[in-house]
């Protein structure tokens, strides 16, 4: 019973964090609010037995991604007055959408509490969670690790191609232009005539350094 009480506590806090993120005017406050949501979700995952997900949630979302978010907010120096341009859109689209969602959820919760079957319809036939018999140890660190390096080892390895492509792409896009790339290799021939003289001049030295 206590565990379910804690579950409700965490989930309520997560929802509160989400509301706070939308309602708070200052971007940093909103970011901290989002952090609260993520941590509460991590706690909920842990209570559901998905320990690895909980750890990932803390390390990746609450850690890395939040740092990125805060960093960008500070980099762009966003004040509380910016980014409110979509207010009217939010009101006109958001409120009806939220109303529909909440009413559907409320109806499901009502039927569950009352122990009755909701009227058959597309939205009610989600399926019966009780029918799902999860295998032993599902979602634990051990089983995810076994899957990752067992059955899913090819996707696991292929992910490295994705990372490589991402790195090459980032270097390609942000490198110092064509002349800059030449400076790393060896600028012989037409490279010198590109007009980016400053970079092309340093090329031969840079080229030898790189080759060595």
């Amino acid at each position: 019973m206590t565990s379910s009480a804690f579950m409700y506590l965490f989930l309520a806090a997560a929802v509160a964090g989400g509301v706070g993120m939308l309602a708070l005017r200052h971007p940093i406050h909103a970011a901290v609010s989002l952090l609260g949501t993520m941590l509460c979700l991590a706690a909920a995952y842990a209570m559901l037995g998905a320990h690895l997900m909980a750890v990932f949630q803390v390390i990746i979302y609450a850690g890395a991604i939040m740092v990125l978010v805060v960093y960008i907010i500070m980099l762009l120096d966003l004040g509380s007055d910016d980014a409110r341009a979509f207010r009217s859109v939010k009101v006109f689209v958001g409120i009806p959408a939220a109303t529909v969602l909440v009413s559907v959820l409320a109806r499901l919760a009502w039927h569950r509490a009352a122990g009755t079957e909701p009227r058959p319809g597309l939205l009610s036939s989600i399926g019966d969670p009780a029918a799902a018999a999860l295998p032993e140890g599902f979602g634990t660190v051990a089983s995810i690790g076994r899957d990752l390096l067992g059955r899913y080892v090819v996707p696991f390895e292929v992910t490295s191609v994705l990372l490589l492509a991402g790195i090459v792409g980032a270097v390609y896009l942000t490198g110092r232009d064509s002349a800059g790339l030449k400076a790393q290799g060896n600028a012989v021939g037409e490279g010198k005539g590109t007009g980016d003289g400053g970079q092309a001049e340093g090329a031969p030295a840079g080229g030898e350094e790189f080759a060595a």
Partner: peptide, 14 residues
């Protein structure tokens, strides 16, 4: 990718 760093040749040839 390796050609870029190892082959010394004019850009045209590379």
């Amino acid at each position: 990718l390796l050609v870029d760093t190892t082959v010394k040749a004019p850009d045209q040839d590379r």
